[in-house]
Amino acid sequence: MRDIMGMMGKVKEMQAKMEAMQAEIAAMEVEGTSGGGLVTVRLTGKGTLVGVKIDPSLLKEDEAEILEDLIVAAHNDAKGKADAAMAEKTKEMTAGLPIPPGFKMPF
């Protein structure tokens, strides 16, 4: 019976850690750039786009397609950084737990 109570305590502790980590990830902002810094985007840890910064030299009518590509590239850069930060935080939190490779946490 003690083992079950101990296990329940660990489950509650893990749940509290996961909730804290989710709040930390939601509050986190990452920045992605492309075109050598000509386009910069900011995303929340959950992937919501919160800002775009475009160098004025790109605001030419005949360069719209280039600008569109740079925005997409900057977004992908920021999203990759957010995903890497989330994976690192998850790894830190679950250290020592027997979680199968490739298992996705529910957030």
Rank of each mutant, 00 (worst) to 15 (best):
D3Q: 09
A26R: 00
M7N: 07
E88L: 08
I71T: 07
T33R: 15
P100A: 15
M8Q: 15
A85W: 08
K53M: 06
A73S: 15
L58A: 05
T90Q: 12
K104Y: 02
A82M: 10
M21I: 05
D83Q: 12
L38W: 11
A78E: 07
G51K: 13
L58P: 02
G96R: 03
G47R: 03
K60R: 11
A20H: 06
K89T: 04
P100H: 14
G35N: 12
A27K: 13
K60F: 00
E88N: 06
H75E: 04
D83W: 03
G102R: 11
D62V: 07
K81T: 08
M8N: 11
L49D: 00
A74H: 03
A20W: 01
G47V: 01
G96H: 07
E63S: 04
N76F: 02
K79L: 14
V39L: 08
D83S: 08
S34W: 10
M18A: 12
V50S: 00
M18Q: 11
M86G: 10
K81N: 09
A73M: 14
F103C: 03
T40Q: 15
I99H: 03
D62L: 05
G51A: 06
K89A: 09
M8G: 09
G9H: 02
L43V: 15
E13Q: 10
L43D: 13
P98Q: 11
I71S: 05
K104G: 02
L70T: 01
I25D: 00
T40W: 07
K46A: 10
G35M: 05
S34G: 14
K89R: 15
E92G: 10
G102C: 01
I99V: 15
A82N: 10
A85F: 09
P100G: 14
G9Q: 15
V39C: 10
S34I: 08
P100Q: 15
A73F: 03
A84I: 04
D69L: 12
S57C: 06
K10T: 14
D83V: 14
D77C: 06
K53G: 14
A16L: 05
I71V: 15
P100D: 13
F103Y: 10
I25T: 07
E29K: 02
L43C: 15
I66Q: 15
K53N: 14
S57D: 02
A95T: 06
V11P: 00
G96C: 01
N76G: 08
A87D: 06
S34H: 08
V41P: 11
V52L: 10
E92Q: 14
F107K: 00
E65I: 07
I66F: 07
V72S: 09
A74Y: 02
L38H: 13
T94D: 01
A26P: 00
I54P: 09
T94N: 09
L58K: 05
P101R: 04
A78R: 09
R2D: 13
K46Q: 05
K60S: 02
A20Y: 01
D77I: 05
A78I: 01
L49E: 00
A74S: 10
V30K: 00
V30G: 01
R42E: 09
D62A: 06
V52A: 10
M93S: 09
G35S: 13
Q15Y: 08
A23W: 02
A73D: 13
L67W: 13
G80P: 08
Q15L: 04
V39K: 11
S34D: 04
V39F: 11
G102D: 01
K79I: 01
G32N: 12
E24P: 00
E31N: 12
A95W: 02
G35C: 05
V11T: 08
E19Y: 01
